[in-house]
Design a protein around this nucleic acid. Structure first.
Lengths: 116, 116
DNA sequence: TCCATAGATAGACTGGTGTCTATTCATCAG
DNA sequence: CTGATGAATAGACACCAGTCTATCTATGGA
């Protein structure tokens, strides 16, 4: 598994990747992009999905493990996973009949930085 | 102005105020609350309002200064300010005919922490 | 080859949200 | 007291987003 040594970044990666968004007036385009990212997080099901995936044993979880604890239908869960993936907050990998999702730490750090 | 010495907190206030939300499976109630907070940030006008207020000379701005740069009607701006204030992300103070808004840093830090 | 199963897609329905105009409320100047 | 102005509220409208059921696609076992 190459999850941890993906690209070899220094510890202060967040400092170089993206500016603190609130320290200076946001341009409309950047505000729109940021808002789209936060909109992805603005749903309890997706937040729980993220937390379930991030806290899974190997840092990844298959869809079959996610449907039941969420209490939503399988298509609904699939729908939310797609939204998270399109936002780059998770990424999926198909292995056999199962798809395994894992969080994209860099993107989460990016959003965290935006609130500085 | 008592903005800076509001309650006297140590520097590591974020460590004690709220757990990292993604490190453990989120309970439904907490997920719902967090989602509501992110929903407030999921709008470009509100993000620009936050950035305008946070980057204003004295860390505060009156409504009259915000309407024009946003290109939205005064009631629309007022509407968004209300949403930000109800979420506790900003707070307003009426002085004379004007209302001055400033960011609530503690709340922003809280949300930042939630993405750990 | 055929069936069972994991997951994605399609389409419909409903509730919520951003925006506006019109109006009201509050504060100060004269 | 009265008029002007900064800000909030009310109500209407259009659009988007979350959920479901039904269906389709793909993979592996027998």
């Amino acid at each position: 598994m190459e999850t941890t040594v993906r690209k070899r970044r220094p510890v202060n990666a967040e400092q170089e990747c993206c500016p603190a968004a609130l320290a200076t007036p946001l341009a409309e385009t950047r505000a729109t992009a940021l808002a789209s990212d936060f909109a992805v997080l603005a749903d309890p099901v997706r937040l729980r999905l993220l937390s379930l995936i991030a806290s899974a044993p190997d840092g990844e979880a298959c869809v079959c493990e996610l449907v039941e604890p969420l209490g939503r239908s399988q298509p609904t869960v699939s729908h939310h996973l797609k939204i998270l993936a399109e936002a780059g907050l998770i990424e999926g990998e198909k292995r056999g009949r199962w798809v395994w999702y894992r969080p994209v730490a860099r993107r989460l750090a990016e959003l965290r930085r935006a609130l500085d």
